[in-house]
């Protein structure tokens, strides 16, 4: 009985012990609510945008779904959308999100092979990867059939100016991408022996050998980075 009275007395003398600053809360809440008000985006559109952004990013990297954040913030009457998408790892195009790299595959690839062996291996791998990719596409049709694929129309110029650029963006569909993959596989098969004769750069050797569709992914990203 006496304790609450004493603590009350102490509080009145020394001021509240814990000082939760509601001023910070109100500022934070206002900033968010005003960003939404000013943008006047309805929640459905906002959610659609969120989903599509995640879909696009997920095509290239594996996103940590537990800790991703989308927020609108406003400052000086300017509103910005901030997406915080923690990346777990880069996703090779040929692999689904939950397929770990097999240890066996790794070991096999580390060995140096003769050029002919290597190219034969590559062809086999290319086929296997393509089959895997098709499977994945069947599992996750939105990766290919989502309307966002149209965005890829910007990229063909960057992908060493090959076939893609000739097609209008509407035609870039699943089949298109598959044939593109085949092209890529053939090209690697014929033009690019997977190791260098001097053998000095064995690290570089390991880079492109995750799987062949991955090589396509690199082809898309590398020129883009250079262009900036």
């Amino acid at each position: 009985m006496a304790i609450p009275i004493i603590s009350d007395l102490l509080e009145r003398l020394f001021g509240s012990s814990e000082d939760p600053h509601s001023r910070d809360d109100v500022k934070r809440r206002l900033q968010i609510v005003l960003a939404h008000d000013r943008l006047a985006l309805d929640p459905q559109t906002m959610e659609m945008m969120r989903q599509e952004i995640i879909a696009v990013v997920s095509r290239y990297v594996e996103v940590d779904f537990d800790s991703l954040e989308f927020s609108l913030a406003t400052n000086q009457r300017v509103t910005a959308l901030t997406a915080n998408l923690p990346i777990k790892r880069i996703r090779p195009l040929g692999r689904g999100p939950d397929q770990p790299i097999h240890a066996d595959d790794e070991v096999k690839r580390i060995e140096l092979a003769s050029p002919t062996e290597a190219s034969a291996l590559d062809a086999k791998e290319a086929e296997a990867a393509l089959r895997k990719f098709e499977e994945n596409c069947r599992d996750e049709p939105e990766l290919i059939h989502s309307p966002l694929d149209i965005d890829r129309s910007d990229l063909p110029d960057l992908i060493d100016g090959a076939g893609d650029a000739l097609h209008p963006p509407e035609e870039i569909e699943a089949s298109e991408k598959e044939s593109n993959l085949l092209d890529q596989a053939e090209r690697i098969h014929s033009d690019e022996p997977p190791f260098r004769k001097d053998g000095s750069d064995s690290d570089a050797l390991n880079v492109p050998d995750m799987s062949i569709p991955d090589a396509t992914a690199k082809a898309t990203s590398r020129p883009k980075r250079n262009s900036k």
Binding site: D19, H21, S22, R23, D24, V26, K27, L30, Q31, L34, Q76, R77
Partner: peptide, 18 residues
């Protein structure tokens, strides 16, 4: 209340409304 950080200050409100 502003001094006790329990109310937005003039600067806070003006900054938000710009």
């Amino acid at each position: 209340m502003v001094a006790a950080e329990q109310m937005m200050s003039v600067k806070d409100v003006q900054g938000i409304l710009s």
